[in-house]
Design a protein around this nucleic acid. Structure first.
Lengths: 347, 347
DNA sequence: CATAGAGATGAAAACGATACCATAAGCAGT
DNA sequence: ACTGCTTATGGTATCGTTTTCATCTCTATG
């Protein structure tokens, strides 16, 4: 494989000049430039990014860490990050922690050793040792955490406001006359899960609806735990709810699966709502009411923080960007909406 | 950030010795080793992979190119590749061509310039200039194409045998008494699409079923095109089929959406089958009969080809690994199967 | 006409690791 | 006592770039 030296020799100039042509920065005689460009063509020259990164300390690479891959919300988020990254000339290194702390630290260390320009964590089941390690990394390169962390750690965060969104969802249901609303919350470790739960409580209170603690179930965002929640509500709960809000679409779909398999009608018998607006939500029959996270915007903001980085100096420079979710009302709560979304429409 | 020199100084040895400790290859006095390890700890030393890759010509990085992200089959495939790569100590650089030739060549060039150890292409709408470029790349590093390419190009391929699988699917349907079977094929440019179509023809012939060319529709693997196909079959086709096989689950789900929205029962009125077994197939109601691609195996084989690479010298060294798909019979064709898959089961 | 500045180029030092070669000590075998 | 092998270590070239500094030739300017 040809290197810059070969190109220089072939074009009869010094390597410095070739470098100048590549980087298009210092003035170069048009004739010389042409000769160099031709040499590069002929030798099929491609600059070695390792060498380049070594000198410049910039690799135009970002690291992205995704949790388990089961939840397709992360697939979709991931897709937008890739798109955004590509559009600004960055390439992604991807790995998954599989929710294992030690593995996670190892992965981050690996990314750092590859001299990435920034790192995006999609989420993580809060473990202190990993987050402390992350803070350390954040002193060197921008670190962006796509979830609510609370304010204790010195890393940037970007996330959707689950409090407001779920509260709005309760208003929506209350407006339709539902009153005995069940809630499936996420694991306590995630503060985003707590936000959503707090939003639920807030909505219930503001609508002067009675909160029955029996109507609250803790899930883990998975399909299966939604299914389990539904079976709990229907079989063990003293008074089955007339509406169920799940903190993730996947859990909501698990609920739907249970209900439909038992011949319970949605929303006539029980309304179901989710959170995330994964593409599957539109495909369900009935279509699923949910809260759309602005993933395109999340991706854009994250990349922005990496590209326009300034030297981060500790906690005071960190940014917390909180975006607003959007309520998508569909048939699973509101029978006046179409039972299934027209695939030709843009919604 | 500390480098090897700092560690050497701190431990009172030469950088060569530090390198030996890191790579654990030459003999090193246990005491010296300990001193070096301690120095590394204290300085928080992480080896610079750029520098290392520069010397060793190995980066332990693979490039993965995915097509559009819309089809969740690629998400799932991608997930297994990541898993497999991580388990052998490799990290992935990911990008998407967005089915744009020029962009694709650009992406590949970028990956090569980053000195990846191998490249996996999930699929590509066959464009000659990109594939010719790929052949060139394959002279330097292993290139693995996860689709049938025909045998014209000097790159490795791994894929599922669509011919046998779809033929089996026809046998399955014929066995249940369906005879007027419609087929939604993929775009002509993909030879995998043609394999599946040929399998359909084969199955029909072997079951002495009449093939009506009106019953064949060309889609593009998307949800929407499945929907369109169904509307064509039901509204414009002289004699609507009693069963529909789609060459992708996504198209099959589009079909289901159309049929269910018109109140047509599946499978009592019309049976529906897909291809891929994306996780959504199990979640549909009714659950979707389909052909599972052995994605775990595909991922494993692909990584194997990269890790155990020998110098590839042209066409004769290329491998074509063809795996067998597995028929998954569910309710959408066979009413004796459960209407929805038990989420607790392992299927 | 001396000279400052701009344009165009090149030589050589880094960047942070590994690989190759050299050296020195200790010990076994003749 | 010499040779040859093993263990332990260090010096330095090298990977392929960019960056800094230096040089040289013009041209414009007072």
């Amino acid at each position: 494989m040809a290197n810059i030296k070969d190109v220089a020799r072939h074009a009869g100039v010094s390597i410095t000049t070739v470098s100048r042509v590549i980087n298009n920065i210092d003035p170069v005689n048009p004739e010389t430039r042409q000769a160099v460009e031709q040499a590069m063509m002929e030798l099929n020259y491609v600059p070695n990014q390792l060498a380049r990164g070594m000198r410049t300390k910039r690799t135009h690479t970002i690291g992205v860490i995704i949790p388990e891959f089961i939840n397709s919300f992360y697939h979709e988020l991931f897709q937008y990050i890739e798109e955004e990254a590509a559009s600004v000339g960055y390439t992604m290194l991807v790995c998954s922690t599989r929710e294992h702390t030690e593995q996670g630290i190892h992965q981050i260390k690996d990314l750092v050793s590859r001299k990435i320009d920034g790192i995006i964590l999609c989420t993580y089941r809060g473990d202190d040792s990993l987050l402390t390690y992350l803070e350390q990394v954040a002193k060197t390169i921008p670190v962006i955490f796509l979830d609510n962390l609370g304010h204790e750690y010195a890393v940037n965060t970007i996330y959707t406001d689950g409090f407001i969104a779920v509260s709005e969802m309760v208003f929506h249901l209350a407006g339709l006359g539902y009153s005995n609303i069940g809630f499936i919350k996420g694991l306590e470790q995630y503060s985003a899960a707590n936000d959503r739960f707090a939003g639920f409580m807030d909505g219930m209170e503001k609508n002067t609806l009675k909160i029955d603690t029996k109507n609250i179930f803790e899930g883990d965002y998975s399909l299966k735990s939604g299914y389990k929640a539904a079976s709990y509500f229907m079989e063990q709960c003293p008074k089955a709810p007339d509406a169920i809000i799940a903190s993730s679409d996947l859990m909501a779909i698990g609920v739907m699966n249970y209900l439909l398999s038992k011949g319970i009608r949605i929303p006539q018998d029980i309304a179901v709502a989710g959170y995330d607006d994964i593409s599957l939500a539109r495909l369900m029959i009935p279509s699923l009411t949910t809260i759309a996270q602005p993933i395109r915007k999340i991706a854009k903001e994250a990349l922005g923080l990496i590209i326009n980085r300034k030297e981060q100096k500790g906690l005071k420079d960190k940014k917390n960007i909180i975006l607003k979710g959007e309520l998508r009302i569909r048939h699973s709560t509101d029978p006046t909406k179409p039972n299934l979304v027209d695939l030709g429409s843009t919604e």
